[in-house]
Design a binder for these strands. Structure first.
Lengths: 336, 336
DNA sequence: TTGAGCGATGGTTACGTATTCATTCTAATG
DNA sequence: CATTAGAATGAATACGTAACCATCGCTCAA
């Protein structure tokens, strides 16, 4: 070294502790010359903080989630955290994936679109690791969660569609055991029941374009008279729209399609999808906030935050009957 | 503990070293009861291996890259590596981003679609960190790189299009300072020159849908008679197709569009995009191989690997003149 | 019987940092 | 000048592991 103790070096790099300006200069200069750089592992070892967050994703094919990943990275890296990315290929988060995160003693874990089994959740908790579910929640509320109020959103969507004049519905769903699917279906059905609309078909599937495409084909060969399809999410909706067009339907003249998420592609000219916007940025912010809170105080009870979102009207749902101007599609973009 | 030294515990968890079966059982059992788990940071500290790979991405909006990320994760996690995900918002990889990776002493770094400046590269090298560029390369060949032979591919594409009978071309490009753009343009132009085709317009842009959309509008208000547009990549191509349709062009009757990458969405019914497939899986495999090689022996000279790819014929380019059957679009899918 | 060889095990050290404690230095106050 | 509070600094320790070295006990063969 150059004339100073290790303690002082640590003080210069780590905290804003008291070091004379002269020595600080000197240390930084020598460090630069020696290519010195603090070692994060040693720091983690003594600090018991890794400054790393595990982010478990699934279904990265869905652009909704790559967007989510991007935003999470922006927020967390600004706070000095690093992201360990884990792509889960299975419905349940794998035991080994948790083990890996534990060995690296991540400070927290964000889980998106992957069902967090109770034992897994317990395990993370037992090691004092903060967990927040994004866009999902578990029954027992064992973990904190941030998600859109799918139930309420689906109700509003249903009301909107019925008001417009639709009378025969189909729901092309995602996996039937996910909270998002369950809530969206429940809300939608509740409104239909209340409005005494009996014509409602459910076609199961998964959250992919291909699934949407197939389901739509399936649906329309088995059923007639459907005039509106509510899709479990946008990526399904795009598949549905393409399938309908291949069959020969005009959207929205012959049949209306509505999605959920408001992914960028829905706004593309080929689709112009009417959908429900999830306030992704706000959801991410809330998730980060909850996560940091839990990291700071691990004894806190799980916290559940729901957000609203809003309807984005484009051109895949036919205009309301009262003000129908047949060939004059309004050019609503969804932006205020 | 329960009746054994720390050394033995280490032997059980770390290596396949010699431990009697009896004690191994006992240790594992006690470990389970105590929720013991080896600490990756301590291990990294002594081993000087972090088993972490930094992956620097940009333009995550492009589904090509989320696919790439997914594949990289699958490959590397199977090898026991963990991914530190970094989303670079800038053209140049940031100094601070490198610093972060260095502090965590990642074993290697993969850089996709982000220009790696020479000083940054030198810095990583100086610390003995393996670097591989994915889908890009630098002039001086200071780093290893794996990419598709864009020059050759563009030549083949051009030849294909000219053979079909196209005579007036446009190239809607990505950023003009990226190796991909430069090579694709060079190859394309070379063939046109050789075939004595002078009608060739270049419209600059970036690798996004929106850019493609705008560029196509721009292009067609300024030029007439263009019968084929070669797009810098698929996501641009989709934007171009949508713009053309909005204007009123029929694809491929009025104008042909061809992309590059073969992202999933190109196969969707709305687009059915003819394009050039990048052999992503093979490219990832090659990248991982080069990376591991460099991690093992840091003194190795940089290695550059180029791959071929192949043309995927769908329906966005009009069929060759000789076998033209006007209204009978073949249903080629690109799958063998 | 004895020594060699080997598998199994424990003791010890080093990795690079943050932190605590003790010490020295500085400056301000009376 | 004496006293003292506070800033600046160094020494020592702990974090949890892998690896090296030494030891121990056992087996087998001469």
């Amino acid at each position: 070294m150059a004339g100073v103790s290790q303690s002082t070096v640590s003080r210069v790099f780590a905290g804003g502790a008291n070091v004379s300006e002269k020595k600080r200069k000197k240390i930084l200069e020598v460090a630069d010359r020696l290519n010195y750089m603090p070692n994060a592992h040693a720091r983690s070892l003594i600090t018991r903080k890794s400054m790393m967050i595990g982010i478990v994703m699934r279904n990265m094919r869905n652009p909704f989630y790559s967007e989510v990943l991007e935003i999470f990275h922006n927020r967390l890296s600004a706070l000095g955290y690093h992201l360990i990315f884990i792509n889960s290929n299975n419905e349940e988060i794998q035991e080994s994936e948790i083990t890996q995160l534990l060995e690296y003693s991540v400070d927290g874990v964000i889980i998106t679109d992957a069902l967090l089994s109770s034992p897994a959740s317990d395990r993370l908790k037992r090691y004092g690791i903060a967990v927040v579910l994004f866009n999902r929640y578990t029954e027992h509320l064992a973990s904190s969660a941030v998600f859109c109020d799918n139930y309420l959103a689906a109700k509003q969507i249903a009301a909107y569609l019925v008001d417009i004049g639709h009378r025969s519905f189909a729901f092309i769903s995602g996996p039937s055991d996910t909270s998002t699917t369950i809530d969206r279906l429940r809300g939608f059905r509740e409104v239909l029941d209340k409005r005494r609309i009996g014509k409602f078909v459910i076609e199961p599937g998964s959250y992919t374009y291909e699934s949407g495409f197939r389901s739509a084909q399936e649906l329309l060969t088995k059923n007639t008279g459907i005039d509106c399809i509510f899709c479990g999410n946008d990526i399904i909706a795009l598949g549905v729209m393409d399938a309908l067009r291949v069959i020969g339907f005009k959207i929205p003249k012959d049949i209306s399609v509505i999605g959920f998420d408001n992914i960028r592609m829905g706004a593309w000219a080929s689709y112009s999808l009417t959908t429900w916007e999830q306030p992704v940025e706000d959801m991410v912010d809330a998730t980060v906030k909850v996560l940091l809170r839990e990291i700071k105080d691990k004894t806190l009870p799980p916290q559940v935050i729901t957000m609203k979102g809003r309807l984005i009207v484009r051109n895949s749902v036919r205009p309301a009957i009262q003000d129908v101007k047949p060939r004059t599609r309004g050019r609503q973009t969804g932006k205020k």
